[in-house]
Nucleic acid binder design. Structure first.
Lengths: 226, 226
DNA sequence: CTCAAATCATGACGGGGCGTCACGATCGCC
DNA sequence: GGCGATCGTGACGCCCCGTCATGATTTGAG
């Protein structure tokens, strides 16, 4: 199963053999070819890494496993990323980048704490559920997946949540609270509850979101009764 | 700095040279000698690992770094642990084992949700603060430290928290809630807030505990005002 | 006390992943 | 068309990993 070299690396110039029409290539190329293969390779490495992490698990995966799936040479990997860890970060960063617009919408339309929190948590839970089933990471439950590092996009998400809190608390003339603790705690709850949510069948994003929202809004006394 | 071979490995029999008193060695030995060096080596590896993880960071640390600090041979490491990960788990397990009695006390004396939660959270925050300063892990903030795996003692702690919740909720004739979500969420809050707490100077366990307790007890509306 | 069997530390060794680098092919540009 | 810059390539040296044959030490039985 090495048949993968095709669409990557130097998409050969063979196209120019049937060059009847002197110029005007049919589709591709706006930026130069170099630029195109660069983004293609970078993306290919990311895709391969996602597969490998899913198949072998993060710990067992090696840089060579990843690069092998792309058909590229081992040295090429290091033209794009410094290590397996950096690829993982890039993957996490990518996830955060895709989630951020959804969060942005919630922040913008936020008018009070409750609605903002519900919107943001629901958006997050649906996001992770979708991610989960898109590239189904069929890894044994309880396997070690590293905590995502503080990549730029992840920090941006954190700050956006914080900003959203600040905004609605301001709107409600609420007394000041420790925003750092609050943001950290809410994200922790969201992460942990969403993890448990994904382990249950069927996956109930609405129920899990309801739990998280009510816990944060009113604490234990407000929790949904079973 | 290799001067460490001393107290480990086959504490030589030289003691028997000055054998004036036929028997009755001064202190050590109840169990056989073999058993004693076994526990000594196991402990030495654990201690060395703690140092190495603290000095180099978990990722950078290698099995050889650890075993080197003990003066033992590389092969000996594998008589006790299968890998660096397993040592880490053993370290985490050890922490949980030492924390469990403190938690047990809180569970036993628990009479209502509020007091139990406050007791448990306070105990935990003080525990992590103490650990932190005992073997000061002067690692650059934000460095990757793996999530502790679900070792037996850690699972036991989780269950004990859950049991405590079940007990006090029962005592209060409170309506049933999703105990799994609740326990996971509370532990997540405790972990995350305690992390942030440790990054601030001075370390304010009381303030952090107050925040966490009030968030869980009453949600945002109940949070301490700044 | 003696000796054989069991235990276990030792460190050399093969295997393999890591990151680098000199080379050469391709591209962009004049 | 040709030159300089770029970048893919894969072999190479390095180091870490986990194993295993060996011998030293301990144990327990006679």
């Amino acid at each position: 199963m090495t048949g993968r070299h095709d669409r990557l690396v130097h998409e050969s110039r063979s196209m120019s053999n049937i060059a009847y029409f002197p110029k005007a290539p049919v589709v591709d190329d706006r930026p130069g070819k170099r630029e195109r293969t660069k983004v293609a390779n970078r993306q290919a490495i990311l895709d391969a890494a996602r597969e490998v992490f899913g198949d072998l698990g993060y710990d067992a995966a090696t840089v060579r496993d990843i690069i092998r799936r792309t058909g590229l040479a081992s040295g090429t990997f290091y033209n794009y990323y410094k290590s397996k860890e950096e690829v993982f970060d890039a993957l996490a960063d990518d996830g955060a980048r895709r989630f951020r617009p959804l969060l942005r919408v919630e922040v913008d339309k936020a008018v009070d704490f409750q609605s903002f929190l519900r919107g943001a948590i629901t958006a997050y839970f649906q996001f992770v559920a979708t991610e989960q089933e898109n590239w189904r990471l069929n890894r044994p439950a309880g396997e070690q997946i590293p905590h995502a590092r503080a990549t730029p996009e992840i920090v941006a998400v954190f700050n956006e949540v914080r900003e959203g809190f600040a905004k609605v608390l301001e709107l409600e003339h609420a007394p000041a609270v420790d925003l750092d603790y609050l943001t950290a705690a809410c994200i922790a709850v969201a992460r942990e509850v969403s993890d448990k949510m994904l382990e249950r069948r069927p996956v109930d994003t609405a129920g899990a979101a309801d739990f998280a929202v009510k816990l944060i809004l009113g604490g234990l006394p407000a929790l949904p009764k079973l």
